[in-house]
Simulated assay, not measured.
Amino acid sequence: MGQYDALFSRGKKRLSELKKLNAVKSTPLMQRLESQGISRREFMTWSAQVTAMLSLPLSFSPLVAEAAEVADRVPLIWLHMAECTGCSESLIRCDTPSIDSVLFDHISVEYHETLMAAAGWQAEENLEHALEAYKGGYVLAVEGAIPTADNGHYLTVGCKGHTGTEIIHHAAEGAAAIVSVGTCAAFGGVQAAAPNPTEAKGVDQVVHKPVVNLGGCPPSEKNIVGTLMYFVMFGKLPPMDMYGRPKWAYGARVHDNCERRGRFDAGEFVEQFGDEGAKQGYCLYKVGCKGPYTYNNCPTERFNHHTSWPVLAGHGCIGCSEPNFWDAMADFEKPLGRRDIHSLDKTADFIGTAILGLSVVGLGAHAVAGVFAKDVEDK
């Protein structure tokens, strides 16, 4: 518990310093929530849920609530590069207000091309003012890959014709934290798919500062808000995996928490879309689901107010939160084993025909079973 005690103390000190700053928003967060029909009880429930999502002890829940209330003291500059704006849509496109969307409205968003009314020279001026006025203290969120071929001229932005590489270097220089929102910003995404003529890259391959990568096409709004809340609370980026993704969000395989996992273990697979297995909710591995190779919290957090996610809706995971997913995970309707003779694919066939009654738990066990599957196939 010593580690958590030190983290809690850091959070209390950080929030105490933020409270000394002038509030940017004239309306306190709780008034904003109440105006949208969201009660204090619901807000505290949300705080507890975010605490659990961030893999923190429940005692941190009041700290999360405090951080949300002073989130407007941390300026946010959101840049659009080579992308489709789907990541912003993931956060703001909802039919009814949620605490996440209201909180994003409460944060001091100093620049966001999709949300702001300014355009042209005025927009350019707003960005330059924000970068200078909040230098060293703002969070830089980047949506989209950075084309680097031909000195970055495949992406020129604004009336001054600055390239994406120029803008990202300038903005990153004064950032207190950098967040790559979505797979395009994190790893290059579809823009970096072979043959990648624009030499599109993830932000962390272009700048020389720590970057937290929120993989996903798009990432869950929970992952965006949760990462921002972590920085507001502690003034630092969360613990990350080998690809720079926050462990609290990308620490488990999609396969591990999938509601169809039991079907995989039982050897019950959809053989083709629309068959009886599909109607019964069988595992989608044989029709291309990449859940066993993908790290994300989609099954637990879902999308659209926790309504659904692709696998629950009937299509396999395409591995969109993984580096180079557009090339590495294709074809999206075929298992990887059909291309590379992957052991897991052989295991799927084996479980479905030879040992249907055997309960096999964990991918490690499945991989071992794949060795025996090869023997069966060879006979």
Rank of each mutant, 00 (worst) to 15 (best):
E89G: 02
Y138A: 04
E143I: 07
D100L: 13
G86W: 05
G136Q: 07
A67W: 13
E110P: 01
I99Q: 03
A82S: 15
N151F: 08
A117T: 14
E83F: 09
A130M: 03
V70W: 07
C87P: 07
K135E: 14
L91M: 07
G137K: 11
I99H: 02
S98W: 00
L127V: 00
D150Y: 10
D150Q: 15
L103Y: 10
L127M: 00
A67S: 11
L155R: 05
S90Q: 00
A145S: 12
L103H: 07
A130F: 01
D72G: 12
E113N: 06
A71N: 14
G120S: 14
S108L: 13
S108N: 14
Y154G: 12
C94F: 02
E110I: 01
T156L: 06
G144Y: 04
E124V: 07
R73D: 06
L103F: 13
C87G: 06
L91N: 07
A117D: 02
L91H: 11
I92M: 09
E69F: 05
Y134P: 12
Q122Y: 12
S98K: 01
T114R: 12
L127N: 00
N126R: 03
L131P: 09
S108Q: 13
Y111H: 11
A118M: 01
A133N: 15
A145Q: 03
T96P: 01
N126P: 00
R73V: 09
E110K: 04
E69A: 14
Y154H: 15
E113R: 12
Y134S: 11
Y138P: 04
T148Y: 05
E83G: 15
E132D: 13
S108A: 15
E89Y: 01
D150I: 07
E113D: 08
K135I: 04
G137C: 06
A130C: 02
L131T: 08
T156S: 10
A123N: 00
H80T: 08
V102Y: 04
A82T: 15
V102W: 03
A123D: 00
L115Q: 11
L103T: 07
E113W: 08
H80F: 06
I99C: 03
G144P: 05
D72V: 12
T148C: 05
I92L: 14
E128Q: 10
W78R: 02
H153C: 05
W78K: 01
V139R: 05
A118K: 03
G137P: 04
E69P: 09
T96N: 02
A117H: 10
D72F: 15
I99W: 05
D105A: 09
E132S: 14
R93K: 11
D95Y: 01
A141T: 11
E128P: 01
S108C: 15
A71G: 12
D95N: 05
E128C: 02
E125F: 00
Y111N: 11
T85M: 09
V74G: 03
T114Y: 07
A133G: 08
G120H: 13
I107M: 09
L79V: 01
E128R: 04
T114C: 09
